[in-house]
Design a protein around this nucleic acid. Structure first.
Length: 638
RNA sequence: GCUGAUGUGGCUCAAUUGGCAGAGCAGCUGAUUUGUAAUCAGCAGGUUAACGGUUCAAGUCCGUUCAUCAGCUCCA
């Protein structure tokens, strides 16, 4: 007999070998119906999993991540089964559950069109009606290989061959369909009440562009029809926050055919950008950073010395001046190195922090461009910290703190990744190991959860990345902290130590916002265009009731502008309601309606973006409120 | 770069089987003088992404290129 401790702390005694599903059934048939998977001693397990020893067990439903995972993984099998029924010649590659739904990569000789997707969707619904049970079985490596070979599933064959020696090879089957799969899966198909195939894309086998491109079908399933409707509505809502759409509507920026990947910033976008940059300068100055600006075009020799010529050439643009080769900078570091090298340095100068809002150009693949998020010209909020090896940890921690301080101002959540040595890299393994450990040490000291991203470091060093989310939950790298022992060597940088000898400094390359462009895009989506007061292009729109109130309105605007508030008067010959609507749609935080009553009485009728009419306020109180909101970079209006 | 889809006034979208390119909003002009999310009327605005082809006739069919969108790959 074994003891099983449940989520609520109750302990139940069962015979060894009882399955997760049987435990659920024993508790109640209702619970058994909604249980999709289990979490056994902290590990996600199949609902069929026999429990052999004293354990803690959580029964997972669709409300749990693990339950969703099993549900969607089964969704992907259902998709594959439907495809195989319609196109028996199709070869299956991989079909995992993802954060929102699932996909399956399929190699089939017909081009899947939206019409075919509809057909597949119908076939899936038909399969659910058949009420097939899902069964799990294990095979030896030889038998498994034999099975998939007989079925002609050569992608599966390759997958099995790549499994580690001791791996348990399991298959899940439903009716005539069976698929190599580690699971977990749900008990049978009938809980799947809503099915939607979402999109279609090409995807390389093993993610390698040298391999064949397969057709990837994305889909999602739910236990209730209403959940699908809600999901689709949420997607629609998220699309309204898209920075490309809002950028157009609010007239912030544009990207035109004449310059793919080269964004134009419009007057209103520039207000936000300038506010961001002055905030950035303020935060850096008070932390001891100096600011520099290095040229955009520098000669080819420099890029050969820095290693970019050998390691980054495909992403660079080149030009020729007086018959010499020049490159347009894809990174700011070599220029920064030259500034450091201009004069001798003492250990007393270190750490030396040089910041640069540097405009870089990188050739990104045409298909990779995405609004402001991925462009071909962008301004990095770069800085290079020159320091002694002893200062590494402290300085890395200071940068982590700075990033956290800055992200907090916007109310962002972020995710941290640690990226290690890539294939194309310079420097010895020992130095890489040391640098990677230094970064890891800083993360551990700060008790930050991070995700490991092997092989994704810069070519000169490992890095800590900060990722922020867009409206659809896609994450984008913004801040980065990169440790570099290579550039100091290549540029023969040194400082004089307390011993009077020359020493090699170590460099941190870092950004906080990442690129101003990308950060701006994230910002638009994060706030859905409703910028906090300090960033809003127009902070107060004054709306006179009639012509006779224009002078009074302009007087108010002047007083506000005198204290640095961006105020504007809408003098157009339109009805009040029209102009309020317009200001509202421009997402202007505050509106003032001024007519006879205000001109006589002194107090002003205030309207706020989110809550509408806010009653009367005196000009003095309003000024105080605005100054406070702007100074504290408040995220709220009242 | 790869796979698939898309491209019509500044914006959002119409245009039967190939048969005279249209509407709303925005803009301009005039009337209207307005109290918390759209006042009325008139005017102007297009080589239908570009180039080539088929046809008596192309926004529509075919080809090439460019751009955009969803992914893949890559990356701030």
């Amino acid at each position: 007999m074994i003891n099983i401790t449940l989520k609520d702390g109750t302990v139940k005694t069962y015979e060894s070998g009882i399955t997760v599903f049987d435990v659920a059934k024993d508790i109640s048939s209702g619970l058994a119906r909604v249980t999709l998977a289990g979490e056994l001693n902290g590990e996600l397990v199949d609902i069929r999993k026999p429990i052999l020893e004293d354990s803690t067990l959580s029964l997972l439903t669709f409300d749990d991540e693990g339950g969703k995972h099993a549900f969607w993984h089964t969704g992907s099998h259902l998709l594959a089964q439907a495809v195989k029924r319609l196109y028996p010649q199709a070869k299956l590659a991989i079909g995992p559950a993802i954060d929102h739904g699932f996909y399956y990569d399929i190699d089939v000789d017909v081009i899947i069109t939206p019409e075919i997707m509809e057909k597949i969707e119908k076939e899936m619904a038909k399969l659910v009606k058949e009420g097939l049970a899902i069964e799990r079985s294990e095979l030896s490596r030889a038998d498994a290989l034999e099975k998939v070979k007989n079925e002609g599933e050569f992608y599966k064959e390759e997958l099995i061959q790549n499994l580690p020696e001791d791996a348990i090879i399991s298959f899940y089957s439903q009716g005539e369909f069976s698929d190599l799969c580690a699971g977990p899966h749900i008990n049978n198909l009938s809980p799947i009440k809503a099915i939607k195939l979402l999109s279609l894309a090409g995807a390389y086998w093993h993610g390698d562009e040298k391999n064949k491109m397969l057709q990837r079908i994305y889909g999602i399933t739910f236990p209730k029809k209403s959940q699908l409707t809600e999901y689709l509505e949420r997607i629609e809502e998220a699309k309204k926050r898209d920075h490309r759409k809002l950028g157009k509507e609010l007239d912030l920026f544009s990207i035109q055919e004449e310059g793919p990947g080269f964004p134009f910033f419009h007057p209103k976008g520039m207000v936000i950008r300038n506010e961001l940059e002055s905030f950035w300068r303020q935060e850096h100055q008070r932390r001891g950073y100096q600011e520099i600006k290095t040229p955009i075009i520098l000669n080819a020799e420099l890029w050969k010395r820095s290693g970019h010529w050998d390691h980054y050439k495909e992403n660079m643009y080149f030009t020729e001046i007086d018959e010499s080769d020049y490159a347009i900078k894809p990174m700011n570091c070599p220029g920064g190195m030259l500034v450091y090298k201009r004069k001798g340095h003492s250990y007393r100068d270190l750490p030396l922090k040089m910041g640069e809002l540097g405009l870089v150009h990188r050739h990104e693949l045409h298909g990779a461009l995405h609004g402001l998020m991925r462009v071909r010209a962008f301004t990095q909020d770069d800085a290079h910290i020159f320091m002694t090896p002893e200062q590494i940890k402290e300085e890395v921690i200071k940068v982590i703190n700075l990033a956290d301080d800055i992200y907090k101002v916007f109310g962002f959540n972020y995710r941290v990744e640690l990226s290690t040595k890539p294939e194309k890299a310079i420097g010895s393994d020992e130095v890489w190991e040391m640098a990677t450990e230094a970064l890891r040490d800083a993360l551990v000291t700060k008790e930050i959860d991070y995700r490991l991203n092997p092989g994704d470091g810069a070519f000169y060093g490992p890095k800590i990345d900060f990722h922020l989310e867009d409206s659809l939950g896609r994450t984008w790298q913004c801040g980065t902290i990169q440790l570099d022992f290579q550039m100091p060597e290549r540029f023969d940088l040194n400082y004089i130590g307390s011993d009077g000898e020359k020493h090699r400094p170590v460099i941190i390359h870092r950004t906080i916002l990442g690129s101003i462009e990308r950060f701006f895009g994230i910002l638009i989506e994060h706030f859905a265009g409703k910028f906090p007061v300090w960033l809003a292009p127009v902070q107060v729109m004054i709306i006179p009731v009639a012509d006779v109130h224009h002078d009074f309105a302009k007087g108010i605007a002047d007083e506000l502008m005198d204290i640095g508030v961006r105020a504007s008067v809408d003098v157009r010959d339109e009805k009040l309601g029209y102009r309020i609507r317009d200001a509202q749609m421009q997402k202007i935080p505050y509106m003032l309606v001024v007519g006879d009553k205000e001109a006589e009485g002194g107090d002003l009728a205030l309207r706020m973006r989110d809550t509408g009419d806010a009653g009367l306020i005196s000009l003095e109180d309003l000024k105080e409120k605005l100054i406070e909101k702007i100074k504290t970079r408040s995220l709220t209006l009242d």
